[in-house]
């Protein structure tokens, strides 16, 4: 048995390319039209400020995405683990990434997910954490002092300039805040960006 594709280069090439392009179309072009609702920014979203955009550049250059994902998956464990004071974190929605280029959704969790980390810690905490992750300070106040405080394997970013760390922190503080989800103990919504 010998097919025409085994003798004619044009038919082989067009055939191999043709049936491949069906899948290409359906998984890269089609979703853009079918899932428009999911992908387009919501009206109350704001694009990144200049400082936050600079912070994103640092995040990009340092490859933080290879250790941190930015997606609360539709799993109870994700929502609880990355929640805040007993409030579950809402799962990440497609439109929340609308202004992200490149996106930092990520595939590997060597460190915790950062999808909703914005507002959870003070900017001062981030500052000292970036300078030296081996000293987690009060984040883990009730952990056994010695060992766990030293356990982080995040690189230290002390080599970044103070400006860069400020920009990066400004960006980190925006993460997940397109949904106003953190509540204080009286049930009041907290979406105050720190200045």
């Amino acid at each position: 048995m010998q097919l025409l594709t085994e003798r004619n280069i044009a038919i082989l090439a067009v055939g191999a390319f043709g049936i491949f392009s069906v899948g290409v179309f359906c998984t890269t072009v089609l979703p853009r039209f079918v899932d428009r609702e999911l992908m387009d920014p919501k009206p109350n979203m704001r694009p990144y400020t200049e400082q936050e955009a600079r912070g994103r550049k640092v995040y990009l250059a340092e490859g933080c995405v290879y250790c941190h994902t930015q997606q609360i998956r539709h799993l109870k464990s994700d929502q609880k683990r990355y929640g805040w004071r007993l409030v579950d974190a809402p799962p990440s929605k497609g439109w929340e990434y609308a202004y992200d280029n490149p996106h930092f959704i990520g595939t590997k969790r060597t460190g915790p997910d950062l999808g909703r980390v914005g507002g959870k810690y003070s900017s001062e905490w981030h500052w000292s954490h970036f300078k030296n992750p081996r000293d987690l300070g009060e984040k883990f106040r009730n952990l056994p002092e010695s060992k766990m405080q030293q356990a982080s394997i995040m690189p230290s970013y002390a080599y970044l300039s103070d400006e860069q760390i400020k920009d990066l922190t400004a960006y980190i503080q925006t993460l997940g805040r397109n949904v106003n989800w953190r509540k204080d103990k009286d049930g009041q919504l907290l979406n105050d960006y720190e200045e």
Binding site: I19, V24, T27, T28, V34, R73
Partner: peptide, 25 residues
Amino acid sequence: AFTYCWTGAHHMIHGPNSYWLETVA
């Protein structure tokens, strides 16, 4: 040639993507 390129979305199962695309993948 036909099937391989359909599967990209299985990299973010349970994630922010649409359910149909995940299922196709």
